[in-house]
Design a protein around this nucleic acid. Structure first.
Length: 566
RNA sequence: CGGGAUAUAGCGCAGUCUGGUAGCGCACUACACUGGGGGUGUAGUGGUCACAGGUUCAAAUCCUGUUAUCCCGACCA
């Protein structure tokens, strides 16, 4: 491809409304162009990358035995009413009516449509199991679209759905999908991790999220250094302690702590570590007008999801207001403690392991030191209340946890019969009896992967594409080819030979200085670059540089094709 | 939905307080010089100052309303 026949729209300056690196680089490199909030056009360069992602996903899905279909993006409201989601789904569902005043929506997902397709085309258990997939545009009317295509309203997704007559068959397909997803992300050249998304309730492997690891990721993932345990931090459980609580050694004392409210202030003022303090939070209880005290170690954070699941606590979680706090403890929020409270107290396991700790005295400007459970206050109920932290023991008992950030790019899920039951999707079994099919569903965010790949791999100069995602394999930068016949001939010859060898080649044949060319090529992230100039040609050499290499190297012009094609 | 901000050329911004000819840098066009990391010069193109109404001899600028966009939070996965 000659650059003069392509279109490169790079920007030197960063558009001001782009917040994260991938969004900035996608705009600067000319991959996408915003049309409206959460809506993006894909420019020629960006589309090349997206097609690479699509093709790899398609190949691996085909290899797994799934069948490609294409369902309408616009869906009749009727089907959504049948599944019950027409009323359940909020304003995120974009609804519309046609000229006959019939209701439709722009599909955010396709469970209803595929279930309808399955019930009308499948009739025998002999046709199962079967997995359908499609690569298609979805729309979710996000409250706050942001980060470019990372969280846009319209996006492209690969969604797949499987149908079974038994749980075992579903599990088998689930395992096949798990493997297919691992293959996909490996081929895409991404560093990723499969993460348990639903630890506990139904069983360890009923749902997995696939995360691309990147510092800017929206999710925090905990994983074990000794096993393959990995879970979203929000969902990872903490282990109950096995060791007994240390014995009390200090006496209970009341100390003055004027104007010291936060754990940080108090611990500094009293010269103790935050982990030796406990914090007490008042939240609304599940009973009318009740307040519940939650107790955590000072250096730990409340996990709101875990807390709201407790029977005694109102769901959704709601912190008590100043008035309620005053009423219960007769002080402000900065001086609360578990001693002497008449309301229900629930403590995190770790908080219960402390001895001789510091806590608020339920009296403004005062704290207690040398506090001990049992001796100074009844031992409260215990629960898992906190976010897991770096260094915690792995919930599976093997190793300790590290925490990294990730971007969710895939999700596999055992749906069960939620839709097939509501929509009466049945086939006849061996006995000629109608049986409700069991379903699995499996999604991959195609457009999000492009952004995630950039988040994971870039430097100050721009994007660094993996070979499998790059819009072009090789770029040729000829110095002054408008004037030098030698350079011109060499560049065109190399372009033609590499193209004939099956590579996607970009020849920078527009008039630009070397600096401009290299800045462009670094920005758009082409993995291999060949600079051709008169100086090198005199010695029959060209300069080669890998995008992520420190240094370039000289290569004999007669060897460069072989070098690049191996 | 709650809080905060912004809207002037394709991009980044000044001008608004104190009303009086629409500006700067990048990009783009032409020509020349230059030629191994965004070079230089000369001459150009491009704007309904978000929209609507009002005040005024005169509005990008003052007033009122509307819309859009962005940030923080909540929500959602």
């Amino acid at each position: 491809m000659y650059l003069s026949k392509f279109q490169l729209t790079t920007l030197k300056e960063t558009p001001s409304d782009a917040e994260i690196t991938s969004h900035q680089l996608m705009l600067r490199a000319g991959l996408i162009k915003k049309l409206a909030s959460g809506l993006y056009s894909w420019l020629p360069l960006g589309l090349r990358v997206m097609r690479k992602v699509e093709n790899i996903v398609r190949e691996e899905m085909n290899k797994s035995g799934a069948l490609e279909v294409l369902m309408p993006a616009i869906q009749p409201g009727e089907l959504w009413q049948e599944s019950g989601r027409w009323d359940q789904y909020g304003p995120e569902l974009l609804r519309m009516t046609d000229r006959h005043n019939r209701e439709f929506c722009f599909g955010p997902t396709h469970e209803e449509i595929i279930t309808d397709l399955a019930r009308t085309t499948l009739s025998s258990y002999k046709q199962l199991p079967v997995t359908y997939y499609q690569i298609q545009t979805k729309f979710r009317d996000e409250v706050r679209p942001r980060f470019g295509v990372m969280r846009s309203r319209e996006f492209i997704m690969k969604d797949a759905y499987s149908f079974h007559t038994t749980q075992q068959s579903l599990q088998e397909t689930y395992d096949v999908m798990y493997q297919a997803y691992s293959n996909i992300f490996t081929r895409l050249g991404l560093e990723f991790r499969a993460v348990m998304a639903d630890s506990g309730s139904i069983g360890g492997n009923s749902s997995h999220e696939f995360h691309v690891l990147a510092d800017s990721g929206e999710d925090a993932i905990a994983f074990s250094n000794e096993s393959n345990y990995a879970a979203n931090v929000e969902k990872a459980e903490t282990l109950t302690p096995t060791e007994p609580r240390p014995a009390a050694t200090a006496d209970l004392e009341t100390v003055d702590t004027p104007n010291q409210h936060s754990i940080e202030e108090v611990s500094q003022f009293l010269q103790v570590s935050p982990s030796q303090c406990i914090k007490t939070l008042f939240v609304e209880g599940s009973e009318e007008n009740s307040v519940v005290a939650l107790v955590l170690r000072g250096d730990h954070e409340l996990n709101e999801v875990k807390a709201s699941h407790l029977d005694a606590v109102a769901e959704p979680l709601c912190f008590a207001n100043d008035e309620q706090i005053k009423q219960v403890a007769n002080c402000s929020a900065g001086s609360l403690g578990p001693i002497g409270l008449s309301i229900k107290v629930i403590a995190d396991y770790a908080a219960l392991q402390l001895a001789d700790f510091v806590c608020g005295a339920n009296q403004d400007g005062k704290h207690l030191t040398g506090v001990n459970w049992q001796r100074d206050c009844a031992v409260p109920d215990s629960a898992d209340l906190r976010n897991i932290v770096e260094g915690d023991a792995s919930p599976d008992g093997k190793g300790t946890l590290s925490i990294v950030r990730g971007i969710e790019v895939g999700h596999i899920f055992q749906l069960g019969t939620k839709y097939s039951e509501a929509m009466k999707a049945t086939v006849l079994d061996e006995n000629g009896k109608a049986t409700i099919m069991t379903m699995g569903c499996y999604g991959i965010g195609i457009t999000r992967i492009v952004a995630a790949a950039i988040e994971q791999s870039h430097d100050d100069n721009g994007i660094i594409w993996s070979e499998s995602l790059a819009p072009f394999d090789v770029a040729i930068a000829p110095i002054n080819m408008q004037k030098s016949e030698d350079v011109r001939h060499a560049a065109i010859k190399l372009h033609d030979e590499l193209t004939a060898a099956g590579l996607d080649v970009l020849l920078y044949d527009e008039k630009a200085r070397l600096g401009g060319m290299l800045a462009d090529l670094d920005l758009i992230g082409i993995p291999h670059r060949v600079v051709i100039g008169d100086r090198g040609l005199k010695e029959n050499k060209v300069e080669y540089k890998k995008r992520d290499a420190e240094e370039s190297q000289d290569i004999a012009i007669n060897d460069i094709v072989k070098f690049l094609t191996h």
